[in-house]
């Protein structure tokens, strides 16, 4: 497993080719819908890691195997990154049924979406459930939303968050809201009710009533079973309404375009007729896996670029 992730992260041409083949095989051979993919996002200090720890303790005894992809920001000046948060996910430290991989966002250098995308695809083939943990700063929610079936937003009580959510326009992505640290009492209850009302007012892709707001106390292990039910219920609704396929498909589109744009820039995208035309092609072409398509489109762009030189 770790070797497969190393491979998927490798930029050398021969290894890249190998990685694409692996990912292509995985995508074609994995049954739909496969393992649930769950995003966990929220501001630093909201208690995401503690919540993950509690989720591990809730789900492991039921026999589920779990994979966690923990994404931390890269420094814009140095390109380096401190991946320090997994220290608080301790429940699985010596348990082979829990796998944790930390990744740097590398947003300036390109690669988060692609590496994380590949990692999720690989881990979903081997584990019963995959979590993707990221720091939410208003921008990354849409990226994570494209990677997962269900996006959980972890809010900190008493910080006047609700208004800020609306301002930042991130209320539209999460499918489940968690107000962690419910032991803070009144502040937590207030934040939860503010969230409930703003969620129902907000312009959301899914119907308003579907976004659950759950109060948890991760340190005390309270509300965790409720959170699991809410996540599972959300995914089940997608499956029942035949919407999960559409969500994954949209995610694939975002990932593919993003990957091409990061690698070849807007100029490269123009070579194949621009974003809109490319999106059409990606949407229609279901003859090959996303990863094979990525390789093919990349080649086309490179050829076109070669000609234009």
């Amino acid at each position: 497993m770790p070797e497969a992730l190393n491979l998927a992260d490798d930029r050398r041409a021969d290894r890249r080719k190998e990685a694409l083949e692996l990912l292509d095989t995985l995508e074609r051979e994995m049954p739909f819908p496969g393992a649930p993919r769950i995003g966990l996002t929220g501001a630093p200090g909201a208690g995401k890691s503690t919540l993950l720890d509690a989720l591990v303790r809730e789900l492991r005894p039921k026999g589920e195997t779990l994979a966690i992809v923990a994404v931390d920001p890269s420094s814009r000046t140095t390109g380096g990154a401190l991946l320090g948060d997994r220290v608080r996910v301790r429940s699985g430290a010596s348990d082979p049924g829990v796998f944790i991989r930390s990744m740097a966002a590398r947003d300036q250098l390109g690669g988060l979406a692609e590496s994380a995308w590949a990692a999720v695809a690989i881990l979903a083939a081997a584990f019963d459930r995959v979590f993707v943990e990221t720091v939410g700063v208003g921008q990354s929610e849409s990226d994570v939303a494209a990677l997962v079936d269900t996006l959980v937003y972890v809010a900190t009580p008493g910080t006047g968050d609700a208004l800020q959510f609306m301002k930042a326009g991130i209320l539209e992505y999460p499918d489940v809201f968690v107000v962690n640290k419910a032991d803070l009492g009144a502040a937590a209850t207030r934040t939860a009710s503010e969230l409930r009302s703003s969620v129902s007012l907000g312009d959301r892709g899914t119907s308003p009533s579907e976004a659950a707001v759950i109060l948890t106390s991760a340190s005390a292990g309270e509300g965790i079973d409720e959170l699991v039910s809410a996540m599972d219920a959300h995914r089940q609704r997608l499956i029942d309404g035949d919407a999960l396929r559409e969500r994954r498909w949209r995610g694939r589109e975002i990932q593919l375009l993003g990957a091409l744009e990061r690698r070849y820039g807007a100029f490269g995208i123009e070579r194949l007729g621009g974003r809109r035309a490319l999106r059409e092609r990606v949407r229609k072409d279901d003859s090959v896996s996303a990863f094979a398509l990525l390789a093919r489109l990349g080649l086309e762009i490179e050829e076109a670029l070669g000609k234009s030189r």
């Binding site: 890269s74 140095t78 380096g80 401190l82 991946l83 320090g84 220290v87």
Partner: peptide, 14 residues
């Protein structure tokens, strides 16, 4: 850990 990050490494500190 901080220094390694400053010279551009990705650092896992547990």
């Amino acid at each position: 850990a901080v220094k390694a990050r400053d010279v551009g490494m990705e650092v896992v500190y547990d």
